[in-house]
Simulated assay, not measured.
Amino acid sequence: MNEQWADVCNIDLIPEDAPHAVAIDGREIAVYRVDGEVYATDNVCTHGEARLCDGYLEGHEIECPLHQGRFDVRTGRATCAPLTADIRIYPARLEGDRVLVRLAAAS
């Protein structure tokens, strides 16, 4: 497993109520800040080609802007219709005020 962590942004770029898109090695990742923790997922919905960074974050759920399906940003689990496939999540952590993401998929 690759243990390489990518420094993606300052925590101040991620509001508590909205995702932020970053690019890592040609992949677009959505990063989230909820209750002082950081999370990272693929940025494209598994149901349609919508970007999750354009969606609505409520608690630990990101709502797709296209068809209103939701994912839990902690687990990647699809939590309601029309979603049938989970989204890939990535390990994320804070080091000081920097957000680090590891591309080796957690799920």
Rank of each mutant, 00 (worst) to 15 (best):
A18H: 08
P19L: 12
M1T: 06
V99W: 04
A85P: 00
Q4N: 09
L100H: 11
G69I: 05
L52V: 08
R102E: 01
V44D: 10
D25E: 15
G96C: 11
L13N: 07
G26V: 02
D35I: 10
N43D: 04
T75Y: 10
D54E: 14
M1Y: 08
I87P: 05
R33C: 02
G36Q: 04
Q4E: 09
A104C: 14
Q4V: 12
A6Q: 08
Y56V: 04
E63L: 02
R74C: 11
A81W: 01
I62N: 05
T41W: 04
P15Y: 06
G96W: 09
V99D: 07
C9K: 00
G36P: 04
P91I: 10
R88W: 05
F71K: 05
L100E: 15
L83W: 08
L57V: 06
T41R: 07
L57T: 05
A92C: 00
A92E: 01
P15V: 06
G69Y: 04
I24G: 10
A6E: 12
D97R: 11
R98M: 12
Y32H: 03
Q4L: 06
V38R: 01
T46V: 00
A81C: 04
E95T: 15
N10A: 15
G26N: 02
A50E: 08
L94G: 08
A106V: 05
C9Q: 00
L13Q: 06
G26F: 01
A92N: 01
Y56F: 10
G59I: 03
E63R: 06
T46Q: 10
N2P: 07
N43H: 02
N43T: 02
A21H: 03
P19M: 09
T46W: 03
G76R: 03
R70N: 02
D72F: 09
V101K: 07
I11L: 13
L94V: 06
T46G: 03
A105V: 14
D86H: 14
F71R: 06
V44S: 13
R98D: 13
V44K: 15
D7E: 12
V73Y: 04
Q4W: 00
T75N: 05
I29L: 11
E16T: 02
L103Y: 08
Y32A: 00
H47Q: 12
D25C: 15
I89V: 15
H20P: 02
P19V: 09
I24W: 13
C9E: 00
